[in-house]
């Protein structure tokens, strides 16, 4: 099954995602990290996330593009973080999918979901702002399209609001 987590900056998406993964019990845990080109600031963010995950037994796969090419053991529980980076890499990164970004990403996600027992996708709530320019508008449209396509297939869609889960789809257990 697939789960989509969204929320603004610093809203506790990662912590909730890890909690969600752990709630599936003792399984093979895989973390797919999509961030590329880490400068000092991103590096700090990565360290923070690593510290959060420490001791939870995750195998980390760094995959900034082409998640379609990933092979994971069947029955794994997978946390993918995050969609906004993955999309930016595919749209603008060297060797990225460019115009085909949305399609390639969705195929990759659905393929992962077929292999995994559970797939938790972290995305970003970045839509309540003025697009700075046309290109930004195009990026937002693509991210919105991806989020909606995943949400359609997801068992649950949860927005994290300052650490509080607000259910958009699916019922709170």
């Amino acid at each position: 099954m697939m789960y989509l987590l969204t929320g603004g900056s610093g809203s506790g998406k990662s912590a909730y995602g890890e909690k969600k993964i752990c709630s599936f019990g003792d399984c093979n845990r895989i973390y797919i990290a999509t961030m590329e080109n880490k400068d000092g600031e991103s590096q700090k963010r990565v360290e923070r996330h690593r510290k959060l995950r420490r001791g939870l037994g995750f195998t980390t796969i760094e995959q900034g593009k082409q998640i379609k090419s990933l092979q994971i053991p069947r029955g794994s529980v997978v946390l993918l973080e995050c969609m906004s980076n993955l999309l930016a890499n595919e749209m603008y990164g060297e060797g990225g999918a460019g115009e085909r970004a949305v399609q390639e990403i969705l195929e990759g996600i659905f393929r992962l979901n077929d292999m995994a027992a559970e797939l938790v996708v972290v995305t970003n709530e970045v839509f309540s702002d003025l697009p700075v320019d046309r290109e930004m508008g195009r990026y937002l449209k693509c991210l919105g399209e991806i989020n909606a396509a995943i949400a359609r297939e997801a068992a649950e869609v949860v927005e994290l609001v300052y650490g509080i889960p607000v259910w958009i789809k699916g019922l709170k257990k």
Binding site: G8, S9, G10, S11, E125, V126, F127, S128, V132, L140
Partner: peptide
């Protein structure tokens, strides 16, 4: 104000 639901700002 619920900030942070927009695009990542350019300013550090």
């Amino acid at each position: 104000n619920e900030l942070g639901c927009g695009l990542v700002p350019v300013d550090a």
